[in-house]
Write a protein that binds this DNA or RNA. Structure first.
Lengths: 203, 203
DNA sequence: TTCATAAGTAAACATATGTATAGGAGGGAG
DNA sequence: CTCCCTCCTATACATATGTTTACTTATGAA
C-alpha cells in the first residue's frame, strides 16, 4: 500500500474515529470544520488521494459514502480490558482499564465493547475457563438463559441470566456452584452486557 | 419495544440489509426506489415511526445518518456455517453451507465472515476443542504463528501458521501431533483467513 | 533557478437528500 | 357512521453535500 503523508494520515484517522463514534461517515465539511480549514477543496484533495492510494472507498456523488479499507494491519484495534470478573464468587470488577488488547477492528466496530478477564471456573461447562477473555457487548437485557455480565452493586460476575416472575437467578456452569438468587428488586442487579465471544489471545 | 407493522418491518429489514451491503445507510430515496413508491413521504413516515418506536436512531438533517438500534433480537444474524474443518488430520472442508447460525450482528458486520466447525483435538492446547466453532475473517495472510484456516488443495485445517524462508509449517497445539511442513510452493497452500474468535453456542 | 507536489483559500455550482404541505383510499374500533 | 391510523401520491422547499475552477504558499528535488 502506497505511502501517505502525515496530513493524509490525520485525515484518515479522523474519518475512522468519526465512523466509530457516529456509525456513519463524515461529510467533507465535517472534516473541514474539524481541521479548521476554510475551504472544502483541501479535504477533497486529501480524500481523492486516500482513495487513489487505496485507503478509502467511496461511492461518488453520494453523501457520507466513505468507507475505510481495512488492510489487516489497520484491522487491529485496541479494545480496553476493563478489569477482571469473577466466574466463581462475585468479586470486584475493576472499572479501571488494565490494558488494551489488539483485536480485529471488524469485531470492535461497535462503540463501547470491552473485554473482561474471567477468573474462576464456575462457567467451566460453558467452556469459559479461568483467564479467558470475554468480549462484552453492552446491553441492558439478554434472552432467558444467555450468558451475561451482571453487576450486583460494585461487583460483577459472568453467569447465565434467568428472570422469573418474582426473582432473578444467576446460574453457574459448574455443578459445585449453586445458583445465586435475587428476589425482585431488593438487590441492585443490573445486566452490563451480553458475552458475545470468548477470546484467547494465543500468542 | 413497541410493535411495528409488517410494512415497517420490511422497511427496517431493508435498511439493515443496505447497511450490511454498503456500510452506509440508505437515503430516503434509496428506500423509496426499492419499494417502488412514488413519493418520499411514505418512507419518511415509516422512518419517523421506527424512530419513535425505538428501532432506529437518526441525526436529523443529516444525510444517511440512520442507525439501527440492535435490541438483542435483531442483533442476531445468520452467519453461514460453511463446513467442517479438521483440527487433526486435514480432511475435506465442505464448501457447501450446512447451516446458518445466529450470531451478534455486530460481530458479523463484515461481509464474508463465516463459521467453521472444528473437528478433532489437535488445537486442544489453544483451547479449541472438538466441535467448537471458529469465526473466520477471510484474509490472505496472518502474522507468524497466528491461528489460521489454511487450505491445502481441497482440504482445510486450522493450525498455527509459520512461514519460513524455505517452507511453511502448520503446527498443532497437541503434543501428539507433529508439524505439517510444506516446502516452498510445491503444494497449493493458501491461507483462507484468520481465526478471530472461538464461539460456543451455549443454548 | 525551475519544476513538481502538498496543502490551502475563495467562490460557485449541481445535485443529493431531509423535510414539509395537502390530500386520498382503505380498514378497524367505538 | 365517525374517528383514527396506515399507507400512499403529488409537489415543493431548504439545505446538506459532493464537485469544480482559479489561484496562492511553501517545500524539496533536479
Amino acid at each position: 500500500m502506497r505511502r501517505i503523508t502525515d496530513r493524509q494520515k490525520q485525515v484518515l484517522d479522523y474519518i475512522c474515529d468519526f465512523i466509530d463514534e457516529h456509525s456513519y461517515a463524515p461529510s467533507i465539511r465535517d472534516i473541514q470544520k474539524h481541521f479548521g480549514l476554510k475551504s472544502t477543496k483541501g479535504v477533497k484533495d486529501h480524500i481523492d488521494r486516500l482513495v487513489e492510494k487505496g485507503y478509502l472507498n467511496r461511492t461518488e456523488g453520494t453523501a457520507r459514502a466513505l468507507r475505510v479499507v481495512r488492510d489487516g494491519k489497520k484491522a487491529i484495534k485496541k479494545i480496553p480490558l476493563v478489569g477482571t470478573v469473577a466466574a466463581g464468587l462475585p468479586i470486584l470488577a475493576e472499572e479501571n482499564i488494565e490494558d488494551y488488547l489488539p483485536v480485529s477492528a471488524d469485531m470492535a466496530r461497535i462503540k463501547g465493547m470491552f473485554f473482561l478477564r474471567v477468573n474462576g471456573d464456575s462457567m467451566i461447562n460453558a467452556a469459559i475457563m479461568d483467564g479467558d477473555l470475554v468480549l462484552v457487548r453492552p446491553q441492558p437485557f439478554v434472552e432467558q438463559g444467555e450468558i451475561a455480565v451482571v453487576r450486583i452493586g460494585d461487583e460483577a460476575t459472568v453467569k447465565r441470566f434467568f428472570r422469573f416472575k418474582t426473582r432473578v437467578e444467576l446460574r453457574s456452569e459448574n455443578p459445585n456452584h449453586k445458583p445465586i438468587v435475587y428476589r425482585d428488586e431488593d438487590e441492585d442487579v443490573r445486566i452490563v452486557g451480553k458475552v458475545t465471544a470468548v477470546l484467547r489471545i494465543l500468542e
